[in-house]
Amino acid sequence: MFYLRLARGYRVLDLGRWLLTALAGAVVAAFLLRALGRAMSDPAGGSAALARLLWCLPPLASVAWFAGVAARAVPARRADRITGLTTAGAGAGRIRALIAGEVALACGVGAGLTLLLFLVLRNDIAGPALADELGMGVALPAAAPVTLLALVPITAGLAAAGAVRPTETLPGRTRPEPTGFGPWRLALPIGLAVIGLALELIALRPGAAADGRPIHLPAGLGTTSTAALGGWLASAVGLALLTGPLLGWAGRLLALGRPTPLRLLAGRGLTAQARRLGAPLAVLALALAMVLTTIRYWLGEPGSADVLPAIEAGLVLGCAAGAVIARLAEVRTARRGVAEALLRLGAAPRLLFGAVVLRTLMSGTVLLVTGGATAALAAAGLR
């Protein structure tokens, strides 16, 4: 009943966040139930069943990450709700539990609807094409789907509880975040990117294709070498970790010298937002790079495309885009006071809009560099 009362005060963004969380949970539940159905239909089982379950881990991790980012935006965007709960006697721990419970409830509703559809299709409604996917003709153990689907709300709820800081759940207790990056925060991604590039160059040297045993990649992506795969992983992680510092440097570049008010507002704003926007934008760029590389390979090799990885890639991209939107909403709420103060001082609204556009262009340039380099290295390593 408490969550139903909260839902009465939902705004458009709150309702959209809840529905997106439920939809993502429903899709992951569909992957898990498909793996269960194929395991029941396949008498061999063994490694094939384990491989299908492992394919469910990337979408489950993406949903958990999206749940964590969306949950962290709740205290900032709904300060009135947090204030009311605090006035009613709820402490920081209880508020975190309520936010995590809301996320888990959304994923549980989505997983429950998927289970209902799964049971309806098993009742001699699905055709022969879906018989193996649903495990038709085999008795369904009651504990198996419940245990699998319980992973979805539990994982999302724990991720949401861990993402929300205790100080952010109390009004007026938010901690100011630093805008810079320490030396280790810069040395680690640069070192990973350099090592990954070196391994990639070693794998692409003449005659390297005959060295070692090739690694067969999933999703019909052909083969690659150990050096190429390790180099791409290291460079991809390095470029992703470097996204935040690059955003900060881009902001400082905008405010360099004697900047105009437009450049100064855009540069200072981007520098202040670099730490918050770095992680979701890096994940979005990495996901886009992998998807574009896969599509390019599939177009060059007709008949190699696979439906399941394509659906999973769509879910990962959706979760990454949703996380970026949630973080942008959080940043906008945090900077609302600054914008209102500038308007009271006489700043033109078009100046603030121009600063937003300039920050967006600089962020897009950074993502084009990191995502393009990641995609180029991935395409070079495929055979």
Rank of each mutant, 00 (worst) to 15 (best):
F2R: 00
G238C: 04
L239C: 06
A143D: 10
E301Y: 11
V283S: 12
V283P: 04
D80G: 13
L377I: 11
A228W: 01
G300Y: 07
A64T: 02
L170W: 10
E312W: 03
A380D: 12
L308P: 04
D14P: 06
M362N: 08
A35S: 05
L315H: 00
R336I: 12
L221N: 02
M40S: 08
R175F: 13
R81Q: 15
W249F: 14
P178V: 14
A22K: 00
A187N: 11
L60G: 02
A228S: 12
A313Q: 07
A285S: 12
V291P: 04
L19M: 10
T147L: 15
L148M: 07
C107Y: 05
A100K: 01
L116N: 03
T260W: 11
A22C: 01
L115P: 06
D80H: 14
P261V: 08
L199N: 01
A305K: 07
A187H: 12
G212V: 09
L345W: 14
V12Y: 13
A67C: 09
L85T: 02
T260P: 07
L308T: 10
P245E: 02
L113M: 09
T370D: 07
R383L: 13
L345G: 15
M1K: 12
A203T: 04
T294S: 15
V316L: 11
A104Q: 05
A209H: 11
T370I: 11
L351H: 02
A348V: 09
S304E: 03
S225P: 06
A198F: 08
R252M: 15
L204R: 08
A70G: 02
A375K: 06
G278P: 02
G267W: 00
I295S: 14
L241R: 02
L85A: 10
L85M: 13
L151Q: 03
P43M: 00
G180H: 05
A30L: 10
C56K: 04
L342N: 10
L134C: 06
L4V: 12
A379L: 12
G244R: 05
T226F: 15
L264P: 00
P183I: 09
L217P: 03
A203M: 08
L345K: 15
V27M: 06
P214E: 06
T21I: 11
